[in-house]
Amino acid sequence: MVLYSLLRSDLEAIDRAVDGEREVLARRDGVVLARAIPGDRRAVAKASDGAFGLDRDDRLSPQTPRTPFRGAVLDAETGRLLGVVSWHAVGYGGTFGCSAWNIGIELVPDARGRGVGTTAQRLLVEHLFATTGLDRVEAGTDVDNVAELRALEKAGFRRDGVVRGAQVRDGRRRDMVLLGILRTDLDGGA
């Protein structure tokens, strides 16, 4: 069964988006991180060149279904949609303290190579640490995605290791690099 709902706040968010206003989460260096509005992910996917896109698989996942939170990456000057970020909780034990945020980003092709990904992911990390109690944020990317690895490292992430065969792209199992950043990394080790 699939249920749909619409709250008054959803309508208000749609109205704000129509008027060109978005709820801004953070901004820096010409990049704005804002709440995503309906259609943002589709717009970015439509503009995508498919680099590092995973193979489609319509089988049901054995994972518990989860809906990630989404944010929009905007050009601070023009308000143009440059991409989307997402985040969801992952667990490494049965307690709150053993949970972390896992983040992802997708940028339109002409937004790449300008530091947008680095800035957007750092803004998201800072936002999550400022607004939630979790102390770890992680991200993974294809071992061959050198640009994203560089962006994450510039954003303060450290390599945790390689997850062998974690993703399927172009019909082949692909290794993924897992990176993480801790709250103490931002606090100077406090």
Rank of each mutant, 00 (worst) to 15 (best):
90 V>H: 07
159 R>T: 09
187 D>E: 15
116 V>P: 13
179 L>F: 01
36 A>Y: 14
98 C>T: 11
123 L>D: 08
42 R>I: 04
110 D>W: 15
122 R>T: 02
162 V>H: 08
52 F>N: 00
74 L>Q: 05
177 V>R: 09
56 R>E: 08
187 D>P: 13
84 V>Y: 10
59 R>V: 06
107 L>W: 04
148 E>L: 04
22 R>G: 03
142 D>H: 14
38 P>R: 11
139 A>I: 00
106 E>N: 11
31 V>I: 12
49 D>S: 01
27 R>M: 09
165 G>I: 02
167 Q>T: 10
41 R>K: 13
142 D>P: 05
170 D>V: 06
44 V>T: 05
94 G>T: 08
11 L>T: 09
37 I>C: 12
77 E>W: 01
43 A>Y: 00
32 V>S: 03
28 R>F: 12
134 L>N: 02
189 G>F: 14
98 C>K: 10
162 V>W: 10
65 P>A: 08
186 L>K: 07
3 L>G: 14
189 G>T: 12
22 R>L: 15
169 R>V: 13
13 A>E: 11
182 L>H: 12
150 R>H: 01
167 Q>M: 08
86 S>E: 11
174 R>Q: 14
48 S>E: 00
73 V>P: 12
70 R>K: 10
16 R>S: 09
164 R>K: 14
19 D>V: 08
173 R>F: 14
86 S>Y: 12
43 A>M: 03
13 A>V: 01
126 E>A: 10
43 A>E: 10
79 G>H: 12
108 V>T: 13
102 N>A: 09
99 S>L: 08
3 L>E: 14
121 Q>C: 14
59 R>G: 07
141 T>M: 13
187 D>A: 11
173 R>V: 00
20 G>D: 04
72 A>N: 10
55 D>L: 05
15 D>Q: 14
127 H>M: 05
63 Q>T: 01
12 E>S: 12
114 R>D: 06
119 T>H: 10
126 E>W: 08
166 A>E: 10
153 E>R: 01
155 A>F: 10
183 R>W: 05
71 G>T: 15
111 A>D: 09
163 V>I: 14
79 G>A: 07
111 A>G: 10
135 D>H: 09
11 L>D: 06
105 I>R: 03
87 W>N: 02
122 R>I: 02
40 D>P: 09
64 T>I: 12
28 R>L: 13
112 R>S: 04
106 E>I: 06
73 V>E: 02
21 E>V: 13
177 V>G: 08
30 G>W: 06
38 P>C: 01
67 T>S: 07
121 Q>Y: 00
6 L>C: 15
114 R>G: 12
78 T>N: 07
157 F>N: 00
56 R>T: 10
3 L>I: 13
16 R>V: 01
39 G>K: 15
153 E>T: 00
127 H>S: 04
20 G>L: 06
171 G>I: 06
83 G>H: 06
2 V>W: 04
147 A>Y: 01
143 V>Q: 00
111 A>R: 13
109 P>L: 05
158 R>C: 04
115 G>N: 04
128 L>V: 06
184 T>G: 07
23 E>F: 04
111 A>K: 13
106 E>Q: 13
48 S>A: 01
86 S>P: 04
166 A>R: 15
154 K>R: 15
27 R>Y: 03
